[in-house]
Each structure stands twice: as C-alpha cells, then as structure tokens.
Simulated scan of single mutants.
Amino acid sequence: MGTSGTFGGSKNGLVPSWVDEPASPPAVAPDSAEPDSADGDGIGGPDQNGETPLAQPGATPAQSYPPIPRIPASSRLGGARGNMTRGARTSDERALRRGAGRYVRASGGGRSTASRMPNSRAMAGGVAGLARSFANQGPAEALRRFNLEGMAGAPAEDVFVALTDMLCPAGGTIDEAIARDAMLETVADLAASGVGNFDELSADNLREFFIGVVSRSIEGKILNEVGTNAIAAPSDVAGVERAQAMLHDFIEGCVRDEFDARETDLSDLDAAVVDSFVDDLYGAALDLVKALGDDG
C-alpha cells in the first residue's frame, strides 16, 4: 500500500479538538392514542385541555412500552478506544490500525460512517471539482465558481486557505470543524512541500491535495470519536507525534489505494458525477480501514 505523496506530511500538523459527542437519550415508543372523539368535548386530547379520557367499552388500556435498549457509546466504541490507547502508549501500529478498523465496524461500516461526514464530503467534492475545472478550463475559470478568480496567480496556500473559508467558514458543528481542520492541515502539507503559485500547480499536486483532504478528514473523524485521551496517552510529545503519524499513514494508504483503483486524475470526471465519486471513495476507503484493521 502506498503512503507517500508528492508532498510529505506536515512537520507541525494541527491537532484536532477531540470532543466526545453526548449520547442521545433512549428512544421510547409512543403510547397508544385514542381518537379525538374520546375527549370530553371532542376537541384535542386529554393532554391538551386537562380532561380525563372517557373509558370505551371493551377498550384495551393504553400501555407504555419500555425504552429500546441502547448500547452506550462508551461500550460500543470500547474495543476501538482500548486498541487506540494501547497503540499510542506502545507505538504499536497494529493496535492503532485495529482501533481504527473497530471504530468503522462499530459505526455500521464504511458508508454508514461516511454518511455522518457531510461537511467533509462537501469539502472534498469542492476540491475535486476545482481540480477538474483547473485541468479543463484553466486556473482562473476553476476559481471563478468560488468568486476567487482574482487569486489565480497568488501563492497556492493562500488560495486554498481562501477556498477553505468559502467552503467551510470557521465556527459551526463538530463535523464542520473536522472538515476545516482537514483542509488547513493539507494546506500546511502543501506549503511545506514548497509548491509555488496556484496557477503553477500540476495535476499531481491537485491529486495529492485531494487525497490529503479525504485522508485528514477521516483521521479527524476517528480521533474525534475514538481518540479522546487515547493518542494523548504517551507522556512524551514524540510519542504523541509518532502515534498520529502511524494512524495518518495507515488511513492515507487506504484512501490512496481506493483512489488509484478508480484510475482517474480527477480531470476526466464528468461534473455530474463528482459528488457520487467522492461519496463512493469515502465509503470504500473506510471499508478498507475496517478490513485491514481486522487483519491487524
């Protein structure tokens, strides 16, 4: 599995804010409802006007159903967290991979996990569309759809930071923060590689940038939901950076393998299929994370 790209990883990668999402309350089936005519005045139900419903001959009393059992997130993701913590503390790459794979499995598989990343998929779709237009229409036209055509000759990192603000402004939901962090971390990778102005980018540069955004967003999703206090477990900074680098290389390798299997450089994609291409790539890459994690 390939893990190296045209530009290397950030030397000072941004660490995402890992926030556990609160568990949802257990679902309760609704009580059996009597027709409105069972109400004393025939208008509304007893909870609307304070009346006691009239007993109907032979009617079965309404019953409350017990809550539907729900596995707490802490239990559902316990195996993933345990492996992630062990991998971080001991620099065990197999445990880190297993933790990522078990997270995807516990989340219902690749497509189910990807469906909960709408902002990340939208961000990656914007980058894919930009790469397609760049190759077929030129840098200025590629940026025109984002009202950034005047930045065609600007430094590439400045253009992508502006694009980030257009596609995903600061503030908002956790998923929006994950998408934004993924884009900015990939911009940092691009800047570290020494790429010059935007209009000088090659098809390889744009492909690597797209793969970086997809990889970083998946990595951020896993760290946000599983990695709280796990990757931060080592007492030394070097240990934290080593664990993050191992996890990133694994996920990027999965994304790259699935991208390469589709035999495209983004320029040949029809505009109408860009979103479905991105959705399919996310789902397949996450399924590969699950499969290879299980083998670890």
Score class of each variant (00 low, 15 high):
residue 65 Y to F: 15
residue 114 A to S: 10
residue 119 N to M: 09
residue 168 C to Y: 00
residue 72 P to F: 02
residue 106 A to K: 00
residue 58 G to P: 03
residue 95 A to Y: 01
residue 112 S to R: 13
residue 7 F to G: 09
residue 214 V to H: 06
residue 138 G to T: 06
residue 11 K to R: 12
residue 246 M to P: 02
residue 287 D to H: 00
residue 152 A to D: 11
residue 174 I to W: 04
residue 158 D to L: 14
residue 170 A to V: 13
residue 99 G to Q: 02
residue 92 D to E: 07
residue 289 V to T: 06
residue 278 V to H: 01
residue 201 L to N: 04
residue 90 T to G: 03
residue 54 L to D: 11
residue 35 P to Y: 07
residue 16 P to A: 08
residue 88 A to H: 00
residue 206 L to E: 03
residue 292 L to C: 04
residue 217 S to H: 00
residue 123 M to N: 10
residue 158 D to A: 14
residue 142 A to N: 06
residue 276 S to W: 01
residue 79 G to W: 00
residue 164 T to D: 08
residue 277 F to R: 00
residue 31 D to A: 11
residue 180 R to I: 12
residue 129 G to I: 05
residue 268 D to S: 15
residue 229 N to L: 15
residue 254 C to P: 00
residue 245 A to I: 12
residue 115 S to Y: 09
residue 70 R to G: 10
residue 108 G to Q: 06
residue 13 G to W: 13
residue 118 P to F: 03
residue 135 A to H: 01
residue 73 A to M: 12
residue 240 V to P: 10
residue 249 D to W: 03
residue 256 R to S: 14
residue 219 E to T: 09
residue 72 P to M: 04
residue 24 S to I: 13
residue 245 A to P: 00
residue 213 V to N: 06
residue 291 A to F: 09
residue 102 R to C: 02
residue 191 A to T: 06
residue 131 A to G: 08
residue 166 M to H: 14
residue 254 C to E: 03
residue 256 R to D: 14
residue 12 N to C: 12
residue 225 E to T: 10
residue 116 R to W: 04
residue 205 N to K: 01
residue 275 D to W: 06
residue 33 A to D: 06
residue 220 G to A: 15
residue 161 V to N: 13
residue 1 M to Y: 06
residue 196 G to S: 15
residue 200 E to F: 10
residue 113 T to K: 01
residue 209 F to Y: 08
residue 95 A to W: 05
residue 40 G to W: 10
residue 293 G to F: 03
residue 262 R to C: 05
residue 68 I to N: 10
residue 181 D to T: 14
residue 30 P to A: 14
residue 61 P to I: 13
residue 254 C to D: 04
residue 129 G to W: 03
residue 191 A to Y: 00
residue 5 G to K: 05
residue 122 A to E: 10
residue 27 A to G: 00
residue 189 D to I: 11
residue 283 G to F: 00
residue 226 V to Y: 02
residue 279 D to Q: 12
residue 147 N to M: 13
residue 153 G to V: 08
residue 131 A to P: 02
residue 129 G to E: 07
residue 109 G to R: 03
residue 275 D to L: 11
residue 170 A to Q: 10
residue 140 A to W: 04
residue 180 R to A: 05
residue 253 G to V: 11
residue 175 D to W: 02
residue 223 L to F: 08
residue 225 E to K: 13
residue 9 G to W: 14
residue 134 F to Q: 07
residue 116 R to H: 12
residue 255 V to D: 03
residue 119 N to T: 08
residue 265 D to F: 05
residue 78 G to I: 04
residue 248 H to W: 14
residue 85 T to K: 09
residue 223 L to S: 05
residue 93 E to W: 03
residue 150 G to V: 13
residue 165 D to P: 00
residue 163 L to D: 06
residue 167 L to D: 02
residue 92 D to C: 10
residue 274 V to S: 00
residue 101 G to T: 11
residue 10 S to V: 06
residue 215 S to D: 09
residue 239 G to T: 04
residue 90 T to K: 01
residue 183 M to P: 02
residue 97 R to S: 08
residue 264 T to Y: 01
residue 151 M to A: 13
residue 226 V to T: 07
residue 104 V to G: 02
residue 250 F to L: 07
residue 151 M to L: 15
residue 192 A to S: 14
residue 110 G to N: 07
residue 217 S to C: 11
residue 186 T to E: 07
residue 283 G to N: 05
residue 252 E to F: 13
residue 63 Q to M: 14
